[in-house]
């Protein structure tokens, strides 16, 4: 059962990573405009990129 010594911390570490990632995304405003984000992906932006 010695593998549990590193399996359990690994599992919890991964969970913690997910939690931190979520809190970071919340803080950086990624949930501020959910409708907009869903729609923006449909926008046609296949025009050549103009260097500005």
């Amino acid at each position: 059962m010695s593998f549990l010594i590193w399996m359990i911390p690994l599992a919890i570490g991964m969970g913690l990573l997910g939690l931190v990632a979520f809190l970071w995304s919340l803080r950086s405003g990624q949930f501020d405009d959910l409708d907009g984000a869903a729609q923006r992906i449909l926008m046609d932006d296949d025009k050549p990129i103009s260097g500005d």
Partner: peptide, 10 residues
């Protein structure tokens, strides 16, 4: 115009 950003939710 330098920036125009619409928040669709609000």
């Amino acid at each position: 115009v330098e920036q125009a950003r619409l928040n669709l939710s609000t």
